[in-house]
C-alpha cells in the first residue's frame, strides 16, 4: 500500500459512549494510510477518542440525543489537523483544564492526555449548524 501524504476524511458519529469504538476504528483506518510509527498512531487515536469522549461527557453531559458529532482528520504538508464538531452545550473555554496531575483521583485525565499528545488545542465557536468546534493540531514528520 502506498502511504499518503495528504488526507482529508470525515465521518459522523452518534453522540454516545457506544460510538467511541467506532471513533477509534475510523481513526485507525485513516492513520493506516499514513507512514507514521505505530506508537504515534496509537497516541493520536487516544487523543481523538478522548476528545470525542469529552463531547459525550461534557457537551451533552451523557444525555441521550439524536444529534451527531462530526470528526474530520486532515493531513497536509506534515500538518495534522483534527476537527470535532458538535451541537451540544457551548464549551466554556475558561473551564477546560485538566486536573493537577499530582492530585491523584479518578477523572480529569482526558484533557491532559490530549494536551500531552497534540501540539495545540483550540476551541472555536462552531459555524452553523454546529455549536462547538475543537481543533487539535500536530506537526507530523514522515
Amino acid at each position: 500500500m502506498v502511504a499518503l501524504r495528504q488526507i482529508s476524511e470525515q465521518r459522523d458519529f452518534a453522540v454516545s459512549s457506544a460510538s467511541l469504538k467506532d471513533v477509534r476504528s475510523f481513526s485507525r483506518e485513516v492513520f493506516e494510510k499514513v507512514n507514521i510509527d505505530q506508537d504515534l498512531k496509537d497516541e493520536l487515536v487516544l487523543a481523538i477518542a478522548e476528545a470525542a469522549q469529552n463531547i459525550v461527557k461534557h457537551a451533552y453531559q451523557g444525555e441521550d440525543t439524536e444529534d451527531k458529532m462530526e470528526i474530520k482528520i486532515s493531513l497536509n504538508n506534515g500538518e495534522l489537523e483534527i476537527g470535532f464538531f458538535d451541537k451540544g452545550r457551548p464549551v466554556d473555554k475558561e473551564n477546560v483544564r485538566h486536573r493537577k496531575i499530582d492530585d491523584v483521583k479518578p477523572g480529569g485525565l482526558g484533557t491532559f492526555f490530549i494536551q500531552q499528545i497534540m501540539d495545540a488545542v483550540v476551541f472555536k465557536e462552531g459555524e452553523k449548524p454546529w455549536i462547538n468546534h475543537l481543533i487539535l493540531t500536530k506537526k507530523i514528520n514522515y
Binding site: P106, L109, F113
Partner: peptide, 16 residues
C-alpha cells in the same frame, strides 16, 4: 489492547 482515561479512572478508584 486499549485503555483510555476512563479505564485509568477505574484503576485509580480500585486502588483507592
Amino acid at each position: 489492547q486499549y485503555m483510555d482515561s476512563s479505564g485509568i479512572s477505574v484503576l485509580i478508584e480500585s486502588h483507592q
